[in-house]
Amino acid sequence: MSRLLMFLLLVGLMATTTLASASSGQDQPDFQGPPPDPASLYAENCASCHGERGEGRVGPAFVLLDDHSDDEIYHTIAEGRPERGMPAWEARLTPEEISALVGYLRTLAAQAQPPAEEEPAPAHAAGADLRLVLTLQEDQVVAHASLRDEQGQPMAGEKVAFALRTTLGGKLNLGTFVTDEEGVATLRYPAGEVPSLTLEASYPPEAGDPIRAVASIDLPAGQEIPPVATGLFSPNPPPIAILLLGLVVGGVWITYVWVAFQLLRILRVR
């Protein structure tokens, strides 16, 4: 089974690369539209209902995918499930593209987090107020996330998730913390040497669309960037080496000048 899947995925990828290299020459009449890159196909056609990572929105998450064979999934995509509102895709996608999508869905399912239990988000989460304040204490950035309900009362004992927003747009989970009786969850994060830090708090952590609070802090220059590890002469030689070299070369040229002076003396003899 997984071999078949891999094969399909492979077919999709091979087709992609072949097309990429072949499209330079002549147009391929067989293919209309983009090559079957499953990731972009998914993003264009499926993500709006099933979520960007297959976590489920209007349509279901893919957690139960393992219970179905590739053929079943293929037919589901091709013919749709009109009773549940899923359109049929065979008119819009080629068989190769659907096959590629099947493989892609499997990888998504494998990566998917265990689904949030049916337990609905706490009723009071809707009107909750989450604030994040960053302060610098010695070498640490202290993040206080204060959580209050709609009445403005601190919410104690709730889980708040913290994440680091990286400089290249990534998000790194830093874990969940429980609010104290004042409704404040606290994270201590080593400041390190970065110029600034952006943290995010979200509540409730399990929800698909939690309340988020983002805060940034500019960090003092602190220590400079660690210097580049260098070889003896790279990128710049030590001044003593330059001095020595200059002395040697300078000595040679001074001798040349002295020789010129001797020539002058020859010229001057009467």
Binding site: V252, T255, W258, V259, Q262, L263, R265, I266, L267, V269
Partner: peptide, 28 residues
């Protein structure tokens, strides 16, 4: 010719310059 007339002073200057250059040119 730099006004060379083979005077002893001229020879002395030339010999000096040549012997210094002969030593100098090897390491260069």
């Amino acid at each position: 010719a730099l006004g060379w007339r083979g005077m002893p002073d001229q020879h002395r200057s030339l010999e000096r310059a040549m012997s210094v250059m002969a030593v100098l040119i090897i390491p260069i």
